[in-house]
């Protein structure tokens, strides 16, 4: 039996189910308990689990991320919520230098099963410091896994997998996707980490994306269909480890690839995918791999800047027509 629920509810169900299943799982972060979550993801969880397992922290990202790492090293499974990944920058020492290195430094004796979660990417006119996309930053670090979601079904299944995973996981959400609705089964299920998903089948071009840029890619695919261009759309869902096989298989069929990626272009997710495809599908490509990224700038406040900065369907359609060598 399925029902239609929001992504916000799907995440809460995942965390709550795992907390019922495993006493060592707990949630900590700013405003997660009494305020019911800055974006209401943890609404009601304090009532069910109490203050021992749903912990409000002061505004001290480095400190509470480190406390999470220590708790994970000592046998618990913390979920550490950042109000946004922009604030997690203050905690990078703990994520990059510690969570990601614990297993290696101890030659496998101490593991660090922790989930760092929160919204990544832009969310309207929030200006330079609140609009950054962190998937490629975190995915650069061996020792971490990186998940980035847009679909309620995937969100729940991947969050449960992340909590059960013995490695540290960075889980990327979006402020503007929490209200997205989708079909989610009532019975338990998991979505495996490291597997992309073909969201729309097509034959002429492959679009690869993740998180809310999936909405851009899907919208572009619909527009292209009206012009008789059949786009296959792949949702990466996991950024690290990257499921390049699913992309390669698709490119073997379509012979063309456009990556739609909210990260900045330099050394971003799109750059890694372009490398993988030229290496493993070189003979199948009928055009250079093309990408639509956020602009190589900071994101300023005014709406005109937001429009200019972000990928949108128009930019994607233009890129698709370039790789198909058809007139705009």
């Amino acid at each position: 039996m399925s029902r239609i629920i929001t992504l916000r509810d799907a995440l809460r169900e995942a965390m709550s189910e795992e907390m019922r299943r495993d006493e060592t799982v707990f949630l900590m972060g700013e405003e997660v308990a009494e305020y019911n979550g800055a974006y209401k993801v943890s609404k009601g969880m304090l009532d069910e689990f109490g203050p021992k397992r749903v912990i409000d922290t002061p505004i001290a990202e480095l400190g509470f991320a480190g406390i999470g790492v220590g708790a994970a090293i000592n046998g618990l499974r913390p979920i550490v919520e950042f109000m946004t990944w922009n604030f997690a920058v203050l905690a990078f020492d703990q994520i990059v230098n510690n969570a990601a290195k614990t297993l290696a430094q101890s030659a496998g004796e101490y593991k660090c099963p922790i989930v760092f979660r929160g919204p990544s990417g832009s969310a309207g006119q929030l200006a330079q410091q609140h609009s950054q996309t962190f998937e490629s930053w975190m995915a650069n670090v061996p020792g971490l896994k990186v998940i980035s979601i847009i679909d309620p079904y995937d969100s729940k299944g991947l969050m449960k997998s992340a909590i059960r995973d013995d490695d540290p996981v960075c889980f990327m959400e979006s402020e503007i996707s929490y209200g997205i609705k989708g079909e989610v089964p009532e019975e338990e299920y998991l979505v495996p980490i490291g597997k992309a998903k073909v969201k729309r089948e097509g034959t002429d071009v492959t679009l690869v994306s993740y998180n809310k840029m999936m909405l851009v890619a899907m919208s572009a695919a619909e527009e292209l269909a009206k012009e008789g261009i059949s786009a296959e759309v792949i949702d990466l869902r996991t950024i690290r480890p990257l499921d390049h096989e699913t992309i390669v298989e698709s490119v073997k069929k379509t012979n063309r690839l456009v990556v739609v990626d909210e990260c900045w272009p330099f050394a971003g997710v799109s750059a890694e995918i372009a490398y993988e495809i030229q290496k493993y599908a070189f003979d199948y490509l009928d055009a250079p791999v093309t990408r639509v990224n956020s602009a190589d700038t900071s994101l300023h406040y005014a709406p005109t800047f937001v429009e200019e900065f972000l990928p949108n369907p128009t930019k994607v359609i233009k890129a698709v027509k370039e790789v198909l060598y058809v007139g705009a």
């Binding site: 480095l62 400190g63 509470f64 991320a65 480190g66 406390i67 999470g68 790492v69 220590g70 708790a71 994970a72 090293i73 000592n74 046998g75 618990l76 913390p78 020492d93 703990q94 230098n97 510690n98």
Partner: peptide, 12 residues
């Protein structure tokens, strides 16, 4: 870096 980590070990 070990100061918050040790604190988290104590939390556990």
């Amino acid at each position: 870096a070990q100061i918050p980590i040790g604190t988290g070990v104590a939390l556990a």
